[in-house]
């Protein structure tokens, strides 16, 4: 299981960043990045994303 980001869809709006309970998301160089070591796959960012750029791969 892992959190997957579709960079083509992502608008790098950053709304998901402060929602992450583990501080695993960050905008770097204008793109959203995931720290997979910190991510606990809770799905909060997936629920938020305005354009469905994030999903949890089972």
């Amino acid at each position: 299981m892992s959190l997957e980001l579709n960079q083509e869809k992502c608008l790098a709006c950053g709304g998901c960043v402060s929602l992450c309970p583990k501080d695993a998301l960050e905008i770097k160089n204008g793109e959203l990045t995931i720290n997979h070591d910190k991510c606990v796959k809770c799905g909060t960012c997936v629920k938020f994303c305005p354009v469905k750029a994030l999903k949890i791969n089972k």
Binding site: G14, G15, C16, S18, C20, L25, T44, K47, F48, V51
Partner: peptide
Amino acid sequence: DGVDSKIARSAGLNTSNPIKDMDSGY
């Protein structure tokens, strides 16, 4: 540093949002 603020958090202030308080905009 805006909605995705990192700086306060890195200093130990909790500025994270619960999802019920974060509207998703497009």
